[in-house]
Design a protein around this nucleic acid. Structure first.
Lengths: 138, 138
DNA sequence: CCTATTTACTTGCAAAATGCAAGTTGCGCT
DNA sequence: AGCGCAACTTGCATTTTGCAAGTAAATAGG
């Protein structure tokens, strides 16, 4: 293999959006929205990893600024804010599934349910469709 | 859809290895090893994003501790350290490709070469094989 | 053999990000 | 009006990062 299409030299870098992927809390918030259907400030705050309230506010702001989520007020209750994934945010699903699959295989602390992991390996497309449908519901 | 296999409640969390994915520099180092064939301390230090030397040392140590990379001394030159992806590290390829694909579509600052992105969309399996082969070379 | 250079780090300190606890604001209910 | 809840904001201590400089070991040249 002497054509080099699979490798990049420093003059043709592969860069990616580090603001999104290089941050722990950002990924957790997206995960919560994507797989757990969370939409409210208090729900994110309650996640097992224990994000603190100032950081949560800052990350939600950043996520909205970069177009990954959209915020609105619950029409039934103006005191409640709703955060939802934008199409751009929903398109992170393949990334999250790849991370989940790798973590399920290699990271002992990463406990996705076994049924979920099995379905992910055996029928990723079907699972993807199901999750996309679930995301539209909210 | 009232079976809930595509969503998880808080009692069945999807957790992933945040030490790996939640850190900016960790991802960049893995990218450099995977797509650019970098193996040496000085090469990582020279990456466009400008990691500082103390952070690089700390991340390499962490990556080795978590089994993603293996370090050795260059047999031809004992003063030179070589860092290489372990099988566990190489298996991050699908994650990196998913991130690259998303970034290529949505992030203006993320410039993977167009030919790479096209191949990624049209023949991901083939590209994956090529990159895996290239990774074995080092 | 002695010196200079390269490579891979370590150290010290200032700046920034994070974590924690407490306070504030706006809305809905009674 | 008064209470409660949800969504933030603020202040401050702690941790992490970034930057500049320094050290140690291994080749390279004279």
């Amino acid at each position: 293999m002497n054509d080099d299409s699979s490798r990049c030299r420093s003059n043709c870098p592969i860069n990616f959006a580090l603001e999104t992927f290089g941050d722990k809390w950002t990924l957790l918030i997206i995960r919560d929205m994507m797989f757990k259907g969370k939409r409210r400030y208090g729900e994110f705050l309650a996640s097992a990893e224990g994000i603190s309230t100032n950081i949560l506010a800052s990350r939600l702001q950043r996520l909205e600024a970069s177009g990954l989520i959209v915020s609105s007020k619950d029409p039934a209750n103006r005191g409640v804010a709703l955060y939802q994934l934008s199409p751009k945010g929903k398109d992170l699903l393949p990334v999250m599934l790849a991370i989940t699959s790798w973590s399920g295989r290699y990271d002992a602390l990463s406990s996705a349910p076994a049924a979920f992991l099995e379905e992910l390996e055996s029928d990723r497309e079907g699972l993807t469709r199901k999750i996309r449908a679930a995301m539209e519901q909210t």
